[in-house]
């Protein structure tokens, strides 16, 4: 039995004048127990829609979805007993109540006795190192503290499947690192537990996930381990170029000029440079790009061949960087 299984799962939304928008289109994934499974995709790709369906908050338009063998439509209550969801930037809870009181409230939603509820709250406060702000009202917490609280809330029922939707979004480096460490610890402590993670950060996905699915416009366009995904571009070359000046549309211009569709550009006003990352088929094609740039009046500062990363796989499959979409 899989931890999560979707079969031809689709979800549409009606927009203006009855126009149908496909948020998910024939999604088939199988997530094994004990896996950290990553779902990568730009904004609007369908990541949150998929999590909402799996968390029983939304019904699919067609197809099937199962969590630990339970049908998310017909056995929603059973699914709810074994899952939990934590979203980055979420502020659920009651601002006027303290962290402790809020956590205790959530223990009651899972039917814990009053005593067991308070015991669980103490355990979670210790696990997440929240002793310093456990008695502070929720509306007075910093973003980092809030995210620790959110994670504590997500662990209240000791979920067998934990959905983490952009869990490090907007956090400073130290807190984000702490949360990644915790995610690994959660799997280590309970090998039966599954973590389904969505993230914008490629490095985070590469560091944490056993397998990754890339979703674009509601479709799964690639699925595999980070190494398998990187092999998808093993026959190709990845180049990094630096051009003097700020050109926000340079990537688009290169695509229009008929070069690789897998190109991303980023301008840095502090250095006055525009960086390009391109997936190309050969060294000759790289030379062509440089020639075209010079011929078009751009000043090429540097060009270097770099190791392919997950970012480049994404670039090749989707035609842009996650942040550009």
């Amino acid at each position: 039995m899989y931890s999560i299984e979707t079969i031809e799962l689709s979800r549409t939304f009606k927009r203006n004048k009855g126009r149908l928008i496909y948020a998910l289109r024939d999604v088939n994934i199988k997530v094994r127990k004990g896996e950290i499974f990553g779902l990568l995709g730009p904004n609007g790709a369908g990541k949150t829609t998929l999590i909402r369906i799996l968390a029983t908050l939304l019904l699919p338009t067609s197809g099937k979805a199962y969590v630990l063998g339970y049908d998310v439509v017909g056995e929603a209550n059973k699914v709810r007993e074994v899952i939990n969801v934590v979203s980055g930037g979420e502020r659920s809870g009651y601002g006027i109540m303290t962290v402790k009181e809020n956590l205790w409230y959530f223990t009651q939603l899972y039917g814990l006795s009053r005593r067991d509820g308070w015991r669980k709250v103490r355990e979670l406060i210790e696990l997440l190192g929240m002793e310093d702000f456990a008695d502070i009202r929720l509306n007075r917490l910093s973003t980092g503290m809030i995210q620790k609280y959110n994670l504590a809330r997500g662990l209240i029922n000791d979920p067998k499947v934990l959905f983490l939707d952009e869990p490090t979004l907007g956090l400073d480096v130290e807190v984000a690192k702490y949360i990644r460490r915790l995610i690994r610890k959660l799997i280590k402590e309970d090998p039966e537990r599954t973590i389904f993670l969505t993230t914008h950060y490629m490095a985070e996905a590469e560091e944490l996930c056993d397998r990754i699915a890339i979703i674009h416009k509601g479709r799964i366009v690639a699925l595999g381990s980070p190494e398998q995904l990187k092999k998808m571009i093993c026959d190709e070359l990845v180049y990094k170029l630096e051009v003097k000046g700020i050109y926000s549309k340079l990537g688009e211009r290169l695509k229009e000029a008929g070069f690789s569709k897998a190109v991303s550009s980023k301008s840095d006003i502090t250095t006055g440079l525009t960086s390009l990352r391109m997936v190309l088929s050969s060294e000759e094609e790289a030379e062509e790009v440089v020639k075209w740039l010079i011929g078009s009046g751009y000043k090429v500062i540097s060009i270097s061949k770099v190791e392919p990363s997950l970012e480049d796989v994404f670039l090749k499959l989707v035609g842009g960087k996650l942040s550009e979409e």
Partner: peptide, 13 residues
């Protein structure tokens, strides 16, 4: 509006 309903609805309560 505060996001509490979403958190509530994923529980068996």
């Amino acid at each position: 509006e505060t996001g509490n309903l979403e958190t509530f609805m994923i529980t068996p309560a």
